[in-house]
Design a protein around this nucleic acid. Structure first.
Lengths: 216, 216, 216, 216
DNA sequence: CATGAATGAGCATTCATTCAT
DNA sequence: CATGAATGAATGCTCATTCAT
């Protein structure tokens, strides 16, 4: 007869918004990110995380609502960060749509490069969320995607990008380039700035190229 | 006490190379692909697969060496397919390096679009292989990647692509665009050919773009 | 990401109706009854039952769907038995309603005396069922109760029992006398037949008494 | 390593007899009764009770010696109340044994009806006490039962009840009718006085009935 | 008095794998 | 080839209880 949903009176992390997160909350989340990054969410055990924090398995439940709760918080944290990047790009004044898009790409790549582990968990294990948590995240994601698609449409409207290409497809090409970094990028080998430059360049030309290269 | 390698005296799947695969082997592998695609490898159970084949869990072990064995076979199957695409592109005669690269992109995208489920499993769960199986696959993958990098270097040597860009980074941008399709592409919405066209175009311009767009 | 409901292909006891129960099923259920009787359902562990059957805890799940499933089967088994008693009493031909009621009491007491442990579990732990299982049992129980109430109303209609008493209250008095045996009756001390006689007599007079004893 | 008895140096609830209970003690006990009534003792958590009192789980241990301690106090409280009823009946002057028994039934039913929740906990979860607490309660119970049996024997001695019936069995029939109310009686539907009347009437006739009804 | 944090033992359940028939 | 039964290790989670502050 399990009674799942947060019973009142039970402490459970304040990370959900009801007050400043306790230091230990942050520590737990950080450890979880590390573990999930290394083993994948499904293969990570609550024990692993407890060990990393130096706590007993049972004690961890003072801070979390369950394993999935950890993933959910992680994923939301990423969304918060990414939203900032997106907003900054959108609010840039006096620049063309293409420049705003480029700014977005740059910011997003930079953010991902600096939060490689959490971002990896985000992209690899987001589907493991279930129920309401899943729906919440899917909604946030859809919103984000739509805004980027709109941005691309703006570049089309301003004549910087060919208008006959499907903006949503283009967005997905771009996402692929940006996101896939989580599988190969290592900061030791390439500075984040260089990565951001390279991808932003790749994307810009990918979108704007017009010259007939095939049959001259 | 999981046993990894086939013990003598027990009939173990011939799919590993020692003879033509029996029909039931193919059926099992196909079912596994479906299940892994839907639930992810870690969340799929041998029971699920047995159910799909209409067999008891225990009986499945006549055909397989273990759960990981299934993943390994799946992943190898993908590599076989992809290798063909790559080889075809490499052997194209009388065309420029850029055209060969474009051919590769096109073939790879098309292959992925037609084998969406297995390809998804490949990219999502390849890390779950362990030990020798993992090393085998990593080797195959490295080989593949290197050949693509070489192809890009050829385009640089032929002057079609700027030589001052890191070919390996460029390869990764391209991989991202191609591979990420496994997360969003749905054949019902967009024909595979259109996808191949779109991505090949995006990649070509991403690589070859030269005009100074930022500060004219 | 737990997947609860009986997945196809999983053996799970045939005791649910789909075929004759395997001998081990009966054994498991019997052991569970014993354990639940001694410790109460909530304090019994699956381990206890496994030990009693001489099986590993995990192996038990080949036979059951979960701990609650065991309770559910037990409780249904009791209902099956009790229903027979009730039906027999109802179908008695050529006798008065009071005699039919008396027959019911006798049969029910006898049944309880012979199935003391399972009956105890039934009355003590029936509330621990949840969800659909609970609703199922509550429905069966209501049906049973209603039939007994009807029987009492028949005795009132036939003039054997005072008509101004609430039949449902009377039924509950009777149930109390019959059911409470599960807390004190020990077959070693009193033969079941004597118990049945005693209770049936007590109930008959309790219902039919009319003479003014208080203020003569 | 649960600690049973109060250690010196730590303030432990005074409810055990060493002084008048503090107001908060009463509040805690009341909350526990409510919780135990709803979930059953075994399924109730100390957290639940703390929530109900508006206190943290840890703080509760200032007032109690443990979960079982709460049950023990509850059960004793019931015994105190019941003892009063019994004593009142015993001490009634100038009335027949049957009238004294009837008075007892009436008082007991009334008491139960007015303390439904605690009484329910008493009858349902008394077995969950262990060790000395259990033995204490069993002794109190035996004493109570014996006094009622004696009362019945008095009615037999006075010729109001047939002497050839086992007084202890009769007592158990009566207990059943009275006690079982905890499972079905709802004060909203039937006034306590009516219940007391009904049961006392049922019991009186059940005991005194003599006329040959079966084979006239 | 009360809080907050932690402990540690226990529990139901899952699942890959084995193997005699 | 296939079945059915069993193994055994692991896993997420619960909860009574302790105790320094």
């Amino acid at each position: 007869m399990p009674r799942k949903a947060g019973r009142s009176g039970r402490p459970v992390s304040r990370a959900g918004g009801s007050g400043p997160p306790r230091p230990r909350d942050v520590e737990v989340l950080h450890a979880a990110a590390e573990i999930f990054y290394v083993n994948g969410y499904a293969n990570s055990t609550v024990q692993d995380i407890a060990d990393a924090v130096g706590m007993l398995k049972g004690s961890l439940y003072y801070y979390i609502d369950g394993k999935e709760d950890l993933l959910y918080r992680l994923v939301n944290e990423i969304h918060d960060g990414v939203e900032q990047a997106l907003t900054a790009a959108f609010e840039a004044q006096g620049v063309s749509a293409l420049e705003r898009l480029e700014l977005y790409v740059r910011q997003q790549v930079t953010y991902n490069a600096h939060n490689l582990k959490k971002v990896s968990v985000y992209y690899h294990d987001i589907d493991q969320l279930s129920g309401k948590r899943r729906r919440d995240i899917e909604a946030r994601r859809r919103t984000h995607d739509n805004r980027v698609v709109d941005l691309i449409r703006d570049t089309q409207a301003e004549g910087q990008t060919r208008a006959d290409l499907d903006a949503r497809l283009l967005a997905n090409y771009i996402f692929g380039t940006i996101i896939w970094t989580y599988r190969w990028y290592r900061p030791e080998a390439v500075p984040a700035a260089e990565l951001a430059n390279g991808i932003s360049r790749f994307v810009r030309y990918g979108l704007t190229g017009t010259e007939p290269l095939r049959h001259p």
